[in-house]
Amino acid sequence: MTLLSVKDMKTNIGQYSVLHGISFDVPEGGVFVLLGRNGAGKTTTLRSIMGLWQPSANSVSFQGQDLSGMGTADIARKGIAYVPENMGIFGGLTVEENLILATAKGTFDQKRLQRIYDLFPAIEKFWTKQAWSLSGGQKQMLAVARAIIEPRALILIDEPTKGLAPSIVAAMGEAFREISQSTTILLVEQNFNFARSLGRDMAVIEDGRVVHTGSMAGFAADTELQGHLLGLSA
């Protein structure tokens, strides 16, 4: 079942045309990975889906509903969360306050909160600490925790492993595997080893266009194609 469908999506930022016709379908469940070199248009794709930049009309549908013209808040209410590359947390607020802001009613569902504690023990440990004082890995955990504190059908996550220590990357991977059992993840990631360990399906973006789609297993097995599309070396 297709959860998110992107069809010939074009996005202009000011006078510049950044996306020239992006198309891919994200099936329900698991992790779908967007790959591509720096500047290919991956972040712009996520921001366009989320309504932060307005894409062309009738180019994004979620659970069969056209998202054209919707603002970011309305898109979020449909059940989509976004974890940007800069994490989007509030450094002057505590961990608890950051999570409260991400709830619909300002109160926690205790079962969901316990799930977050289980996934990210640092959240409970640093509950009363201001977010600025956390390490980079802990801030990323908080950013993901904010995305799942309410039930979501889809989470868009941009470059979650950037600058993180290998041990934190491994812990993040385990958390994403668990999250993806109940919530679909659309992941932008430069760390190919991390991406292929999680991804079920994938697409490669180049110069604002999708140039390849398929299974992650098939792409991971084709080193020649990886080298051609991503510049990866065997």
Rank of each mutant, 00 (worst) to 15 (best):
G41T: 06
V31Q: 04
N12L: 13
G214S: 05
F62V: 04
N191F: 06
Q138E: 15
G163D: 13
K78Y: 01
Q181F: 14
E150R: 08
V210K: 03
I75P: 01
Q110C: 04
D158H: 05
V211R: 12
E178D: 12
N86Q: 14
Q110F: 05
G214Y: 11
F219T: 09
A143S: 07
L34H: 02
G106H: 00
V169E: 06
Y82E: 09
L198Q: 07
P84L: 13
E174A: 14
D201Q: 14
M70N: 00
E189I: 05
E96T: 05
L93N: 10
S133G: 07
A81F: 08
S5A: 11
M172W: 14
A131F: 08
F90R: 05
S135G: 02
I155A: 02
A171D: 14
L229A: 07
A147E: 03
K42F: 04
I168N: 11
E206I: 06
M70T: 00
G173S: 07
R146F: 01
E189C: 04
E150K: 03
V33E: 05
A57R: 09
L3R: 08
V31W: 04
G218M: 10
R146C: 00
L156W: 03
D118Y: 11
L35M: 12
L154C: 04
Q140K: 08
N12Y: 14
L134N: 02
E178F: 07
S215E: 13
M141T: 07
G30H: 01
G39K: 08
E206P: 07
R177P: 13
I100G: 05
A81Q: 09
I13F: 08
L198S: 05
E28S: 13
V188Y: 12
L156T: 07
I75F: 00
A171E: 15
R47S: 08
G136L: 06
L101Q: 14
H212Y: 10
G69L: 02
S215F: 13
L229S: 09
F219L: 13
L186T: 15
D158C: 05
R37M: 09
Y117K: 09
R200N: 14
F176D: 08
A170H: 12
M70G: 00
P27D: 10
A104G: 11
S233E: 15
N12A: 13
G36C: 01
S48L: 00
G137W: 11
F219C: 12
I179A: 01
H228K: 11
E189N: 06
G136C: 08
V169D: 03
A170Y: 11
P55Q: 10
A76P: 04
L142I: 00
K111H: 14
A171M: 14
H20Q: 06
L225V: 11
S180F: 10
P55M: 09
R196P: 04
K105H: 13
S56M: 08
L164D: 12
I205A: 00
S56L: 06
L19G: 10
S135F: 01
L19M: 09
F176A: 07
D109Y: 09
P27R: 10
G39E: 06
E159M: 12
